[in-house]
Design a binder for these strands. Structure first.
Lengths: 250, 250
DNA sequence: CCTTACGTTTTCACTATTTGAAAGGCAATA
DNA sequence: TATTGCCTTTCAAATAGTGAAAACGTAAGG
């Protein structure tokens, strides 16, 4: 094809590339999408997209709404993800500390990881007040959350680049100025604007070699003093260090 | 190939079939697995498996351990699943009721769905006692849990068949005898053997057309009277009906 | 009721892509 | 240094995927 793009795409199967491209498109926008629309956005021909989707439907990675015959992600992705998370080392390492941590900070505690420029919340222990803002199963562009900023700033340069790609122009400019500050900070805080976005305090979880592989986050009440925030951050940091330690010993 | 197998595999891409076959193999057994082992188990040649895995690694659906160069599932499956769950109608319908439900029954509450013969826990609100048995991110063969038995017994015949395929021989025989009883029951209970498997009470969540699309489950304390169990089941059932109602209205 | 419009699905000839045998690397072990 | 075991790459053969076009289904409009 061309000379410079995608150096590591050598010896790779185009059909698989196309299939995951479709999964990516299905993960954006509305839950169910039209064949022709997917063909347009992917740049593939309509019959090709149809065949790919039919193949994915057979595996339950995609499902087709019988009434509209539109396509959306299927339940098998949930099963695969569950198996992935069940064996994720960080989650095993954090497991013993999460409930005590929730009790210590008194609010819901989250574990987040950075995936392709997005923050994914992979575990959670609910606080007693439960879900004033219980927006569970969130996936956000990294820069929109404290956990994401923290992990992005400490990540490799290409992971940082993916975060920039996933961000809005405003966030992108902001992020470029703040990266060093975000990387240096022991904990990060996002104010809960008003309705849908609660406040979030996040600290990194470092593995044996000092890489930030996850973030621990808590959602303090909207009006909380600096001192209260600092105390929550201290609790989070202590649990994060403990988990990091068990991680390197195993 | 042959005459009778796979009638709906027509017009389907072999490469995609092979790729998802590998994802399935990676989801079983140890977290990281050898290329040659995967080639054996899949029946594909080693270079083919290598190319498929390389393609999946490029998409972060699979990751390769740099030290052992073994392959395991990658973080992108978690991101896709999160987007799937974020838009899953049942979860939206149940959301308003889960925290009150947790408070009413006084223990952790789970939402489970049936995927390819397995029970997947797709949402959870933790109780105050948190995780005596906090075995989060569980995927079990359907028949091993109350929620699974309940959903399997009420599912279509091929979903039931998939459950049989995923079960141990013992469970299979047991299930074949109990199916009618499980389908008829308003709630189901599994005793918490001893250590790793807590007790579980489950009720179905029915959609507008009476199909059981999810299960609501709670984990009562090991020693709980029949009456206490019945009360928990009643709470669960009430929430389930409420969610089912909002589901058909939308 | 017939026509038009729009989206999904199928067919089919063409060739780009995938395939597996064999060879090449690269660590560990003896 | 030879050997073993595993991952990775190469390359000719041909299978398996591709897109234009046609067929099908369904819903709105005349």
């Amino acid at each position: 094809m061309d000379g410079v793009s995608e150096p590591d795409a050598r010896g790779t199967l185009g059909t698989v590339r196309n299939a995951v491209l479709l999964l990516g498109l299905l993960s954006e926008g509305p839950a169910y999408q039209q064949l022709t629309d997917l063909a347009d956005r992917s740049g593939l021909s309509v019959p090709t997209v149809h065949r790919l989707l039919r193949s994915l439907v057979l595996a339950d990675l995609v499902e087709q709404d019988p009434s509209s015959s539109r396509y959306g992600l299927g339940p098998e992705v949930a099963r695969l993800a569950q198996r992935y998370l069940a064996r994720l080392p960080i989650l095993g390492a954090l497991a013993p500390y999460l409930v005590p941590l929730r009790d210590a900070v008194g609010h819901t505690v989250h574990v987040a990881v950075l995936v392709r420029g997005h923050i994914v919340y992979v575990d959670r222990v609910d606080g007693a007040d439960g879900g004033l803002y219980r927006d569970t199963h969130r996936v956000h562009p990294a820069f929109e959350t404290a956990a994401g900023r923290l992990l992005a700033a400490r990540a490799t340069d290409d992971a940082w680049q993916q975060c920039l790609d996933a961000a809005t122009p405003d966030d992108r400019k902001h992020a470029e100025n703040e990266r060093v500050a975000w990387r240096e900070a022991a904990h990060l805080l996002t104010e809960g604007g008003d309705a849908d976005e609660p406040a979030e305090v996040a600290v990194p979880v470092l593995d044996g070699s000092g890489r930030a592989i996850a973030a621990l986050a808590a959602t303090p009440p909207p009006i909380a003093s600096e001192a209260q925030i600092a105390e929550i951050a201290a609790h989070l940091a202590r649990a994060g260090r403990a988990a990091g330690r068990t991680l390197s010993h195993a």
